[in-house]
Nucleic acid binder design. Structure first.
Lengths: 151, 151
DNA sequence: AATAATGCTTTGATACTCAAAGTATTATTT
DNA sequence: AAATAATACTTTGAGTATCAAAGCATTATT
């Protein structure tokens, strides 16, 4: 089955090379043209409930210091609010503004369309295989680098 | 099938957030610790035959100018050679040195292991579904942004 | 011979990233 | 209660990554 492996590997590499560019162009066609891809992904991780800096940084696998600078910009652009927690003032809560929520929903739509384009063309048992396969990939990662993965 | 879509989307996003970090750590464990991820991916695209600057830049979806600076560094680190084409001196051929080829094979190994971990656990018809699914994703990209995709 | 087109490099600017040092706050130890 | 440690975040310094636009050779077209 050497050939199968190579085909799958080629497709995965190709997919990864393309996805970011595609996503970027797709999102640039929305009203929120002032967002970089990093900023889009930060908005995606914050989601519709407030989060702490560390939570979001862990999910994105970046340092909190890096996130700080991105949040600075997102606050300036009015996509995010930043508030110190009242119960423990070491924590900072970041939360989407209304504008941020609108952007979030556009990003969500891109992903939904992407997945829909795949799933619609497969029958139910095929979907199970797909889920299973992606899950196997994730497990491959976890197995080799347990301590670095946030589940 | 709303739920299926959400599961698949979640897995994909998670996979993308993880992959680069995982790959980075895996490759940092090799002898070639002086390579950045961008540099690894350039080596991957050059492969075992010589390529022109434009070829590689197109595959990676970066500008030729960006590639120039990366190649500068890879030449300095002795992973790549750069030679003007004799038949048409506008072209520049880039090619892996022996050291570059060794690195290339290590990168290849990472990908092979990754795919193997998935494929080994699926039977033959499942593999077809997986290929089919990834292919659908690629088609989704192509369909919406035809002019930007290099096939 | 002049002009256009092509392939690459350079330049200037911004974004992204990390590690390490610094600040403020809370928890633990003595 | 005071000193120390731990935690959450920000700032700083430095290198990498990226692009658009301008520039340089070389080749193709007019």
């Amino acid at each position: 089955m050497k050939n199968t492996n190579e085909v799958i590997n080629g497709l995965i590499v190709n997919m990864f090379n393309n996805l970011l560019v595609i996503e970027k162009n797709s999102l640039a066609a929305t009203e929120h043209k002032d967002l970089t891809m990093t900023e889009w992904h930060v908005l995606e991780q914050i989601g519709l409930t407030r989060k702490t800096m560390t939570e979001v940084a862990n999910q994105l696998k970046i340092t909190v210091g890096t996130l700080t600078t991105t949040i600075n910009r997102l606050v300036k652009k009015d996509y995010v609010t930043r508030n110190q927690a009242v119960d423990d003032r070491r924590f900072v809560y970041i939360e989407l503004t209304r504008k941020g929520q609108l952007a979030f929903k556009e990003h969500e739509l891109f992903h939904k369309n992407m997945v829909k384009s795949v799933v619609d063309k497969l029958d139910e048992s095929d979907n199970e295989v797909l889920i299973n396969s992606i899950d196997k990939l994730t497990q491959f990662f976890k197995q080799q680098y347990k301590d670095q993965i946030i589940p």
